[in-house]
Design a protein around this nucleic acid. Structure first.
Lengths: 325, 325
DNA sequence: TTGTAAGCGTTATCAA
DNA sequence: TTGATAACGCTTACAA
C-alpha cells in the first residue's frame, strides 16, 4: 500500500504538504492541490487511519455494546446508531455481550485498548464500579449508572401507566405483567412500577412474572407463559415489557384456544417494526427508537468535543393500538 | 493513559522487555514477569491497539457489510459472525449499506483506510469491478463475484426444489413465488430457478413477483401481496424467498380471510429463529446460519494467515415444517 | 507558502 | 537474557 511518502515523492513535495492537502489546512494553491490529488489518484492512495488515529489520539470509532443484535429491538437501535455515526464520520465497533459478564468486561477492555472515542452501553451486567472505571465518553440505555454518566430511556413509568390503564379501561380484571429480571435495576422497571400502582389504584387483581437474570431467551418466554396460564388460567390482560414477549404471549393464547382480544388482551412495549407482521398486530407502547439511537451518538460526539451534556434524556412514549386490545 | 514507557520506567526495565512480556516472546524469568505485570497492574495499563496495529500492520478487525442488521436474517448472521470473531480475538466493524451504492462504496473505502484484515460482504450493490479492487481478504454471502473471491451460500436450488415439491405434493395447483429483484444476480436466484423447473416438470401453473432493486422494504412486501391477490385471487401456494416475506404473506392471507393451510399454503426460506413466534409457525427451508457465519470468519482468518481457501462453500438446507403447509 | 523533524505507542532488528 | 534504536504512517510545532 502506498504511503504519504510515496505521494509526496510522486508529487514532488514534502509529506507535510501532502498532509496539509489531505486535511485541508492552511493556504494551498489550486495548482499544488491538483498536483497532490493527481499523485494520490495515480497511486490509488488511501490514508492509513491507524496512523492518523495514533497521531491524533482519536480513532473516530464508537463502541456499541448490546445484549444481542439479533434481538429486534437492539437490531433496530443498532441500525439507527450505525447510520447516524456514519453520517458523522464515525465507525461502529459492534459488541454483543450476550449478557455474559466476562464477555462484556472483555469487550470494555477491548474497546479501551482500541482507543474508541466513546462507548454506547445497551447492556449492563456488571457492577456500577466497572463502568465508572472506563474514563471515556459513555452513554447508557435504560440505566442510571452514576451521577455523571448520561442515560437515555423512554418514559417508562408513563408507558406502564398507559398500558395498564388501557387494559383496565377495556375491562380486564385479572392482569399479568411479564418482564425482565428486576435485579438488574434497570429503568425499565418503571413500567412494572406503574403497572402495580395503577392496578392497585383501580383495585384490579394482578400478578407478575419475570425472566431469569440472563433474559432474552426465547424458549424461556414460552415457559413463562405456560406457567402463567397454568397458575392463573383466567388472566384476561397481559402487559409484556417488550413486543417480543407480547408476541410469545399472543402465540401462547392462540395455541391454547384463547381469543385475542375477546378473551384476553395483550399489550407490548418498544414499538419494533416487526410487530406489524403479526396477526393481529400487537398493541404497544412505542419508544422513538430512531431518535434515541441518534441522541446516543450525539451525546458521545458532544463529550468527545469536550462539551458537557445533560444526564437525563427521557423520551416520550406513544400508545399504538393494534388488534390485541 | 499510561504507555509502555511508563510501565518500563516503573518496572525498571526497557520498553523492549515490557513488549516482550506483553507478547510472551523469548525467555522471561518469572521474577521479571511478575515485576512487569505488577507495574502494569499498578498503572492500570492497557496496550494501545492502534499503535500495535500500526506497527504490526495488522488490525485484528473484520469489516462486515450487510444491507440492514435490523433485518432478522442479517441480525442473526451478524450475531454469529461477531461471536466467532470475538472468540478468535477479532473485532467487528459493522456497516449497514442499506443497499445504497454510495454508502456501500464509502464503507469499502473506510474499511480499507482502517486497515481491516478482511471484509465479509453480505451486501452487493456495486459492480463486480469495485470488489475486485479491494485487494484484501474477502468472503461474500450468496454471490459469486469472481473466480478468486470465496463465497458462502446455502444450497439454493435444492431449497427451492424442496419447497416447491412440498407445495405441489400437498395439492397446490396455482403457485406464486415472491423474491428479491432478479437483477442482482444473486445465487439465491437458484431458489426461483428451481421453483420454475419443478413447477414446469410437474405441470403446475405458476407466477412470480419480486421486490424492486432496493429490497427489504417491509411496506413493499405488503404491496406485493395485495397485488398478487388482486391479480390471482385463486393462488393456493406461495413460496417466499425469505421468512419475513412469508410472514407478510401469512398476514395478508389471514387479513383477507384465507385459511392457512387449508385454502393456501405458504413456505419461506432462511429459518430465522423468530419464525417460531408466528401462529401458525412458518414452514421454511432452513439455512445453517450459525455455521455459515462461523465459516465466513474462518475463511477470512485463513486468508489472513496466507493460506489458500476453497472458493465455493455451499451449505445443505433442511425443510422444516411448521403450520403453514 | 513549504519543509524539517519530533512525536503518537508499539514492535522488530541488532548488538551486547 | 536484556537493551538501544529504527521502523510503522501520519500530524504538527517550529523554521525557513
Amino acid at each position: 500500500m502506498p504511503t504519504i511518502k510515496d505521494v509526496a515523492l510522486k508529487a514532488g513535495v514534502s509529506v507535510t504538504t501532502v498532509s496539509r492537502v489531505l486535511n485541508n489546512r492552511g493556504y494551498l494553491s489550486e495548482e499544488l492541490k491538483s498536483k497532490v490529488y493527481g499523485a494520490m489518484e495515480e497511486l490509488n492512495y488511501r490514508p492509513n487511519e491507524l496512523a492518523r488515529s495514533l497521531s491524533r489520539s482519536k480513532s473516530n470509532i464508537i463502541g456499541l455494546i448490546v445484549p444481542h443484535v439479533s434481538h429486534p429491538f437492539f437490531g433496530e437501535l443498532a441500525s439507527h446508531i450505525e447510520d447516524h455515526a456514519y453520517r458523522n464520520g464515525y465507525k461502529l465497533l459492534l459488541c454483543n455481550s450476550q449478557l455474559d459478564k466476562t464477555k462484556e468486561m472483555d469487550y470494555i477492555d477491548m474497546l479501551r485498548s482500541s482507543r474508541v472515542d466513546g462507548i454506547i452501553m445497551g447492556s449492563h451486567t456488571l457492577e456500577v464500579e466497572a463502568y465508572r472505571q472506563i474514563h471515556l465518553p459513555i452513554v447508557t440505555f435504560d440505566r442510571k449508572l452514576s451521577d455523571n454518566i448520561p442515560f437515555i430511556c423512554s418514559d417508562n413509568y408513563n408507558g406502564g401507566r398507559l398500558a395498564t390503564t388501557l387494559l383496565i379501561d377495556k375491562g380486564c380484571q385479572k392482569l399479568a405483567h411479564i418482564g425482565g429480571h428486576p435485579h438488574l435495576d434497570l429503568l425499565s422497571l418503571g413500567r412494572y412500577k406503574a403497572f402495580q400502582d395503577i392496578a392497585e389504584q383501580r383495585g384490579v387483581w394482578y400478578t407478575s412474572l419475570h425472566t431469569d437474570i440472563n433474559g432474552f431467551n426465547f424458549q424461556e418466554y414460552e415457559r413463562l407463559l405456560e406457567q402463567l396460564f397454568l397458575q392463573h388460567p383466567d388472566v384476561d390482560g397481559i402487559f409484556a415489557s417488550s413486543d417480543i414477549i407480547a408476541a410469545y404471549a399472543l402465540k401462547a393464547c392462540q395455541e391454547s384456544g384463547r381469543r385475542v382480544p375477546e378473551d384476553i388482551r395483550i399489550i407490548g412495549y418498544d414499538g419494533i417494526s416487526l410487530r406489524g407482521l403479526l396477526t393481529p398486530s400487537i398493541t404497544t407502547i412505542r419508544q422513538p427508537i430512531e431518535e434515541m439511537g441518534k441522541l446516543a451518538v450525539d451525546l458521545i460526539l458532544e463529550q468527545v468535543e469536550g462539551n458537557s451534556v445533560a444526564m437525563e434524556h427521557v423520551f416520550p412514549v406513544e400508545l399504538e393500538e393494534g388488534g390485541t386490545t
